[in-house]
Design a protein around this nucleic acid. Structure first.
Length: 886
RNA sequence: GGGUGGUUAGCUCAGCGGUAGAGCACUGUCCUCACACGACAGGGGUCACAGGUUCAAACCCUGUACCACCCACCA
């Protein structure tokens, strides 16, 4: 071929953008994706070609934070990888707008409280209150629920906008919210199924009770908080003579004392077992018993059992069938009880009632102070208070300690099924693996069934009514459950089959259960919500079990555990094959970012400053399960990578465009190019392996470092040849650059979806017949199988010389293009052979004068060595010339 | 008290049997036909500590200390 036929003059890149402004382009690119529907799920594709993600529905509570960005991007990276592997992706987004967080938010935003006794005001309008709320306005349940729905809609719009801005590739047609009609139906169907299977029951029993929110809570929502307290040494009399000291932190519960216990082996108290004690102040006669749960080492070794101080009290009370002396009411105040009535016995009712009258109506904290005062006065408080720090149980969203309050609640049976639930957990693949331990430990430590009823309003109603007898007493043992084809129901306004609305609350009529379900009762169904469980059996068969559940590790005991439980109870299966646990974003002081104050760092603010790709880069750097320090300098690095990708793509493209005929793998003939491609093949194969195992961070690290190597070294080495080499060598460089570029764009695509798609469209799209990189196939070494294998050493030796020359130039403070007049190389025979293959490129890239080149052969194991001599400065040369002329 | 993860350069982290790595920060250079939103080079580490296994240990084993988290601990 003649030069003038093949080698066009390099086309200027006039049609390519000069610079890339991600803040402008990214939203436009996101819009293109939406227009082209490239993330749409295709329900006609068979299960084995589908990848199903059980996306966490974020709690709708005002704003997403940087921790959300972090974990959702990690999932999106996996989704995008799977999509490029040819999978049809089922990637929905749900909003968890159900429950207490929403109620609280609405209360505070609008200054309202729900009061079911207030009548509904149709069309009532409510304004947001700015500043402090002076007085809460009581509004009807229906108005309150409408307001909750309105507010969550507003928040959900903001959430969706942020996800789109970040390039989260969900299919927005698969959107649900947990309090919506569909989720209510699924949640109630779950209840009915569990009821039919005998896995759910209602019982009147002491439940963990939050007095602020006035609702029962489940074990999984309880957290311990360290509280300062005091031991109070109280003097108890023994009936028939004698006394002993009990050390207690809760003297206010004295009136609730139903027994006194010590360890059976405790010599100090052996003689008292079987006798009765008389409590101070209230003079109640309580049995003194032996129980192994009393620890001789703690306190004075003898303790009072109250109804109820803690779970040990509840267990002992239940086991020994002791009387119930409940003091604390649902609002947290001491009830108005009378000694001499019911279970409250006393040997001196008058004195007992006199004492108790000072406690009635008080909250626990005040009652404690008053009790201490009374005990000190009566002389029953011995010595000084001894300060102690104790772990006290709180509802995770609550501000006051939990109390045990007897009440009727619905429970799902967990304690009968621990072994099976462990087994189900084992069948799921945990990423990272060690997180399974947390699940295991939680299941083994369960001490209560799952309480799912909540005394709240904004939630899924329990689909149950109770029949009333002639005196209007409900019969809780014979609940009337809804019929499956009539869901969802609201027992407050709907009436059960076989009854009419007039019978509500009437003798021999019915009442609806006033409670709603725990949020987790619904969110534990997300894989079934997505699959269309109970409504679309084809879809269900395709979507359930899901492939992946991504979630945070602190909710293993709740969300992961409950989901596994429900999947087993409903479908005798695991809910998903894999669970990926993301870490937390932590501040410098190791506090969780989402909880720490200083809310200036919002995703929206960061996106004014950094590309979405840069935030994604930071997220993609963190391994699963691992906490990550919030560090803005990483965003800068990400931003730099985006810019580099833009420029390197543009530059590579300039070279490729010189080619007349389409390039192919067969054109890659030059040894240096083959060597380079060989390295890239290794990268591709490792990247695929790691991605399959959810080790995306390792992929980003490897791809990134390889890409910088490409820009700094390979591109420098070949650009001269691509520009002015002979036709065949030129074509080889061009073909190599073309493939390299397409590989990098695809490897980076899951992490940096915006910039990769932008540059993909310039050339690779046409080449691959695929207009978005996100529909392109993940690179594989197979793509290059028609090409002969290269020798990695060719590239590596060339790079060594390049580096040696650069080092010399830097040391001499010369520019990179400064000419090299002499180069002495010492190397093994093999290295010399490798180097000779790329010599022309090396000389060109380093500005080396071929005449000054000397290569000497050394031992086989010798390291390659290069001694570099720079040309003398021009002034010196001129001076020399001048002096020689003289 | 039980469990899990961690401790590697000033900072953030990778490496997980074969001569200590990256990025940031720092220092010094360089406008080289993609990129100064850039490039090149340089300084900087008893890989927490103590034992052990091994020809060889940051890496495996045992123990200790410290950090974080999960669970338990309410007399």
């Amino acid at each position: 071929m003649e030069n003038n036929e093949t080698d066009q003059i390099q086309k200027p890149a006039e049609d390519l953008p000069k610079a890339y402004d991600p803040l402008v382009r990214e939203p436009e690119i996101a819009q293109e994706w939406e227009n082209d529907k490239i993330y749409a799920y295709d329900s006609s594709v068979p299960r084995k070609n589908t990848f199903v993600i059980d996306t966490p529905p974020p709690t709708v509570s005002g704003a997403l934070h940087i921790g959300h960005v972090f974990s959702y991007v990690q999932t999106d990276i996996i989704a995008r990888y799977q999509r490029m592997c040819g999978k049809n992706i089922f990637y929905p987004m749900g909003w968890d707008d159900n429950g207490l967080p929403t109620e609280r938010r609405v209360q505070n935003l609008y200054g309202v409280r729900c009061d079911p006794s207030v009548p509904y005001e149709p069309g009532a309008k409510f304004e947001k209150i700015s500043g402090k709320i002076k007085e809460y306005r009581n509004i009807s349940r229906k108005n309150f629920l409408e307001l909750c729905a309105l507010q969550t809609k507003e928040d959900e719009k903001k959430y969706e906008a942020l996800w789109r801005r970040l390039g989260i590739s969900v299919d927005w047609t698969k959107n649900y919210n947990t309090v919506g009609e569909y989720c209510r139906r699924v949640s109630q169907r779950s209840f009915l199924d569990l009821f039919k299977k005998g896995r759910i029951y209602n019982a009147e029993t002491p439940a963990l009770w939050d007095t602020t929110f006035r609702t029962a809570v489940a074990q999984a929502e309880v957290e311990d908080r360290e509280q300062k307290g005091n031991f109070h040494d109280l003097k108890f009399q023994v009936e028939g003579g004698g006394e002993f000291i009990i050390s207690t932190t809760r003297p206010e519960l004295l009136a609730a004392c139903v027994a006194v216990v010590a360890n059976p082996r405790d010599e100090r108290y052996k003689k008292l077992f079987g006798k009765n004690a008389i409590t101070p102040l209230f003079k109640a006669r309580v049995p003194i018993r032996a129980s192994k749960h009393a620890d001789p080492e703690k306190g004075t070794g003898i303790l009072m059992v109250c109804t109820f101080g803690d779970i040990a009290d509840v267990e002992y009370w239940r086991k020994e069938n002791l009387p119930l002396r409940q003091l604390i009411g649902r609002d947290g105040r001491f009830l108005n009880i009378k000694f001499g009535e019911g279970a409250f016995e006393s040997t001196d009712c008058e004195a007992a009632n006199a004492a108790y009258s000072k406690l009635a109506g008080l909250y626990a904290k005040k009652a404690k102070a008053v009790s201490v005062e009374m005990l000190r006065e009566s002389g029953d408080l011995v010595g000084e208070l001894k300060p102690t720090v104790q772990a006290v149980k709180f509802y995770e969203k609550g501000e006051l300690p939990l109390e045990f309050v007897p009440c009727r609640q619905w429970y799902i049976k967990l304690l009968d099924n621990q072994a099976m639930l462990l087994e189900q957990g084992r069948r799921v693949k945990w990423h990272p693996e060690y997180m399974f331990k947390r699940y295991e430990q939680w299941v083994e430590g369960l001490n209560q069934d799952w309480c799912i009823s909540r005394q709240r309003y904004f939630g899924v109603p329990l689909p149950v009514w109770y029949p009333l007898d002639a005196e209007c007493n409900p019969d809780y043992s014979k609940p009337i459950v809804a019929t499956p084809d009539k869901l969802p129901v609201d027992p407050q306004s709907d009436c059960p089959a076989g009854y009419s609305e007039e019978q509500r609350g009437k003798p021999n009529g019915f009442i609806g259960d006033p409670d709603v379900m725990d949020t987790w009762a619904t969110s534990s169904l997300t894989p079934l919500i997505s699959s269309g469980w109970g409504e679309d059996s084809d879809s269900h068969a395709k979507i359930f079990p899901a492939d992946l559940r991504p979630q945070a590790h602190e909710i293993i005991r709740s969300w992961a555990f409950y989901t596994i439980t429900k999947a087993w109870m409903h479908e005798s299966n695991i809910p998903w094959y894999n669970i990926a646990l993301s870490g937390w974003v932590v501040a410098n002081d190791h506090s969780k970012m989402s909880k720490s104050k200083g809310g200036a760092i919002t995703p929206e603010n960061l996106l004014q400053k950094y590309p979405a790709d840069a935030l994604r880069y930071w997220s993609g750097k963190a391994k699963l399960g691992q906490d990550t320090m919030y560090d803005e300098s990483v965003f800068k690095v990400g931003k730099r990578l985006v810019t580099k990708l833009f420029n390197a793509s543009k530059f590579a493209l300039l070279q490729i465009r010189g080619a007349q005929a389409p390039l192919s793998a067969a054109d890659i003939k030059h040894a240096l190019d083959r060597s380079w491609v060989e390295q890239l093949k290794i990268l591709v194969s490792q990247a695929g392996e790691n991605m399959r195992n959810f080790e995306y961070a390792a992929v980003l690290l490897a791809v990134e470092s390889s890409f910088w190597d490409f820009c700094d070294n390979y591109l420098e080495l070949v650009k001269g040849r691509a520009y002015e080499g002979n036709p065949e060598d030129r074509r080889s460089a061009q073909a190599s650059l073309e493939w390299t570029l397409s590989v990098y764009l695809r490897l980076f695509a899951p992490f940096l979806p915006f910039i990769t798609d932008e540059t993909w469209k310039w050339h690779s799209a046409a080449k691959h017949g695929c207009d978005s990189v996100h529909k392109a196939s993940w690179p594989s070494a197979d793509e290059m199988k028609e090409m002969k294998a290269g020798e990695v050493s060719v590239y590596l030796t060339a790079k060594k010389i390049l580096e040696a020359v650069r080092a010399k130039k830097a040391a001499e403070k010369r520019s990179v293009k400064w000419p090299v007049s002499g180069l002495k190389i010492e190397a093994s025979k093999a290295d010399i052979k490798a180097l000779e293959a790329s010599l022309a490129d090396v000389l060109l890239a380093c500005c080396i004068d071929r005449k000054g080149l000397a290569i000497a052969e050394k031992d086989d194991d010798a390291e390659i060595k290069a001694e570099v001599f720079l040309a003398a400065p021009e002034e010196d040369v001129k001076q020399q010339e001048a002096s020689s002329e003289k």
